[in-house]
Design a protein around this nucleic acid. Structure first.
Length: 331
DNA sequence: TCTCCATGTTCAC
DNA sequence: TGAACCTGGAGAT
């Protein structure tokens, strides 16, 4: 599942490519047919991400709320204008159209959070139309709009850009009041809330809970956007035992975790990758970036030696999710 | 072709 | 606390 960084990238993609444009909406799969009919023909007016939720506003105060859940993904096709605040990890941002505008790079790696497909990692279809002169056909002869492949819950189409939504946990229309109620239930998000205020909210909640810090970090009402990968990595970086009750975690460590999340989220949004070993030396960093299976301190490293102490990384189940940690560094 | 798996949430018990 | 939901890739058969 895309953690918070991906959802912010998606929102920025929508902001750049859909906001201000009239959208044609459909539900090829049929499960969002009524909603798509209501959206179709309206202009998109805003795109926002809060935690793992994305909100897309349309004319007449109609909001689309999407949560990708475990399997969801957006595939973008067509002419994709890249938000200048996000980049591909390998820097392949070179394609430009005849107006000199950046187009989407081809995949940054195995599809993880590339600009063309954002969500659950999967093989990606990339269609990049180079200019309006080629409207109707992509440069390589692709159809326009692209043929529907698989279970597409919602297709949003402008004259130049196509976004296909697959497998979301939530895809619903909301009123402004409902959007506000949804957001009110979420914990602070460093890219939405003032980071200093967020730190205070996060610290106050964690410090009064008997629940383990590992569960609290995954609780979206405590902090927005953290998922299983960032949880494991944040706890390792803090050298904190995942089972420590929140109220027993020293305040300075709680604040350190928040500030680390602020930092990692910013890196994730910028690069599209959950790089958590940013404090490596440059050579080791480049190596880690090149190999997505070797990019974390503990996540998916069960049984492998800890990168710091050599102790075997432990894998256990906590609330039906896999938890990776080093029993020595995080004793 | 079948089974398992995954970066998640919600609901019933 | 555990099951259901959801989708497609990967590996086993």
């Amino acid at each position: 599942m895309p953690e918070g960084h991906s959802v912010h990238r998606i929102a920025r993609q929508f902001d750049r490519n859909f906001v201000g444009r009239t959208v044609s909406a459909s539900s090829p799969q049929g499960r969002f047919a009524e909603g798509a009919a209501l959206l179709s023909g309206r202009e998109a007016t805003a795109a926002r991400a809060v935690g793992k939720q994305m909100f897309l506003a349309f004319e007449d105060d109609l909001w689309l709320r999407v949560h990708l859940g475990l399997y969801g993904a957006w595939d973008f096709a067509g002419e994709i204008l890249v938000d200048p605040t996000i980049a591909s990890a390998n820097g392949r941002m070179g394609q430009t159209n005849q107006r000199g505008t950046d187009l989407a790079p081809i995949l940054d790696d195995a599809g993880e959070n590339s600009l063309s497909s954002i969500g659950a990692p999967r093989r990606t279809r990339v269609h990049v139309r180079m200019s309006e002169q080629t409207q109707g056909l992509g440069e390589d002869g692709d159809e326009w709009p692209p043929p529907v492949v698989g279970q597409v819950r919602l297709r949003l189409l402008t004259e130049t850009t196509c976004a296909d939504l697959r497998g979301p946990t939530a895809c619903v229309l909301q009123t402004p009041d409902e959007v506000a109620a949804t957001i009110a239930k979420l914990g602070p998000d460093p890219l939405v809330d003032d980071p200093a205020e967020g730190e205070e909210r996060f610290t106050a909640v964690v410090r009064r809970k008997p629940t383990s810090i590992a569960l609290l970090l995954m609780d979206q009402s405590v902090v927005g956007g953290i998922g299983n990968v960032y949880r494991a990595e944040l706890l390792f970086r803090a050298r904190l035992n995942p089972h420590t009750p929140g109220r027993e975690v020293p305040e300075e460590i709680v604040r350190q975790i928040w500030r680390d999340w602020v930092r990692l989220l910013a890196i994730g949004v910028e690069t599209g990758q959950m790089m958590t070993m940013d404090d490596l030396d440059p050579a080791a960093y480049r190596l880690a970036m090149a190999n997505r299976d070797d990019r974390h301190w503990v996540y998916r490293r069960a049984g492998l030696p800890c990168r710091v102490c050599g102790t075997a990384i432990v894998l256990e189940e906590l609330a039906a999710r896999k938890l990776y940690w080093c029993p020595r560094c995080q004793a």
